[in-house]
Design a protein around this nucleic acid. Structure first.
Lengths: 179, 179
DNA sequence: GCTAACATGTAATCCGTTACATGATTAT
DNA sequence: ATAATCATGTAACGGATTACATGTTAGC
């Protein structure tokens, strides 16, 4: 349905896809692992789970253990298919510029849920986008760097270096998939 | 007023602070410079400018040139003061994890609009936060890396390497401020 | 008996996205 | 003439934040 679901929804979907989880489980993950970049607030998680259930991507069941009102969610067939579609979406320059976090999330799930060779193709495509974008930024820096305030120039350099490191990462990662 | 204004609002405020600009000028900046990560859509920019005007941070005037209906904005005293407060906010770990982009935006403006030595202090504080956060991520990787799917582990490594590169950047930048 | 941790939810608000709408000016 | 570019806006919608609300279970 909604083509532009947030990275957050897909984070939920992917985690629930690995193992059935409650909202509270997800909160703990987002509060205490490197996935901290996602919100662990109840106001974000519970409504998101309700939306996913309404759309038929997950199904929740009361977990009666001890009479506690715990709701454990599992991904449905439709949910898996939707997740698969998301994983398969081609990488755009806009993804690189504005949604790198979502790209990395996607990659993190790719080995478990992607099709054969998807991770390799992902790395190749990302590498291509980075290799085409970085020179543009370098050109801009060369042209305008001189009359930017120092911190402005350094901020731009930070962005470029970050992309360059990401590119080096794609190279070493591709090597791991070849090896 | 609103303590949690978006990075986007501050990008507008900072740019208008350097030189009076219209909404369309801002759209062009966000469409064609390394500030592409901000939205250049009219539905984002014009309402944001209206909000800033309503709050008294900018003032718009009709630019009559050629009878064209162009609205040029200038930052008010209150706007500058608000911007200054934003610049002076201390760096938190949460900023590093979830709002690095906003931090870099802030730094970009710091030489022009910050107080004396603000850029140096910023770099020192950022360096401290990174140096304390990176080992946490490394520890997590050491503990859980082995039983993560390969792409999951690599995604985590990407995040760590990105923070490490950012830390190296703070070092070379601090050197530029000493030099 | 009390506190901390477990566990799920709602309501108000704000902001960004997408899509639509409108009109003036410049270049061909 | 007409297309491209300049220029500003609105409306519907959705998702995230913050703050509030509520109740259970386990350990001391």
């Amino acid at each position: 349905m909604d083509k532009n679901k947030s990275a957050f929804s897909f984070a939920l979907l992917g985690l629930i896809g690995k193992a059935e989880l409650s909202g509270y489980d997800l909160r703990k993950i987002f509060a205490s692992t490197p996935m901290r970049s996602f919100s662990d607030s109840p106001g974000a998680i519970y409504p998101a789970l309700q939306r996913l259930e309404r759309m038929g991507f997950v199904r929740g069941r009361r977990d009666g253990a001890g009479g506690r009102k715990r709701v454990v969610f599992a991904v449905t067939a439709r949910g898996r298919s939707e997740f698969g579609k998301w994983l398969a979406q081609p990488i755009t320059r806009d993804d690189v510029i504005r949604r790198m976090d979502a790209l990395m999330l996607k990659f993190a799930f790719l080995d478990q849920f992607g099709t054969k060779g998807a991770a390799r193709r992902f790395l190749k495509a990302l590498s291509r986008e980075l290799a085409s974008y970085i020179p543009e930024l370098r050109t801009y820096l060369a042209k305008h760097g001189a009359h930017l305030p120092k911190s402005g120039r350094l901020a731009l350099e930070s962005g470029i270096r970050s992309y360059e490191e990401q590119l080096r990462w794609t190279k070493s990662s591709r090597a791991e998939y070849r090896g």
